[in-house]
């Protein structure tokens, strides 16, 4: 079976293609800078007292989810991907949420006085 490259051998077309990738590069650099900035923000916010430890955890997890979203959407190209990948991820999301839901089942089932 042959595996032809998916880039046209026509040099003018390839140039246009390379130009498109070049445009993405700036986006990657911006996302990298944003991730570093968010890391600094996470560290700084952890020294701010939001009243309760739970509030601090919620804020940190919010920032972390935002960062993870950036990585997934831009670096992992999930912002524009084929349908099959999304289908795989929907299943994954379903099962991982089920996994976390088990914690709460176990939590209420646990025979310890709190």
């Amino acid at each position: 079976m042959n595996n032809p490259p998916d880039i046209s051998q026509d040099p003018s077309e390839h140039e246009e293609y390379a130009h498109n990738v070049q445009k993405h590069v700036r986006g990657y650099l911006i996302v990298g800078a944003l991730l570093l900035a968010f890391t600094a923000i996470t560290v700084a916010l952890s020294y701010v007292d939001f009243g309760a430890r739970k509030a601090n955890i919620a804020v940190a997890m919010l920032v972390a989810t935002l960062k993870a979203g950036l990585v997934a959407a831009i670096f992992m190209h999930l912002a524009a991907e084929k349908r099959l990948i999304y289908r795989i991820l929907i299943f994954t999301g379903f099962f991982v949420l089920g996994l976390f839901w088990l914690i709460f089942l176990a939590w209420y089932d646990y025979p310890v006085f709190r």
Binding site: T39, V43, R53, N56, I57, A60, A64, A68, V71
Partner: peptide, 13 residues
């Protein structure tokens, strides 16, 4: 991505 969660959970919170 995993480290993005590990870092605050263990180091900061």
């Amino acid at each position: 991505l995993i480290w993005i969660f590990v870092f605050p959970l263990f180091y900061l919170l």
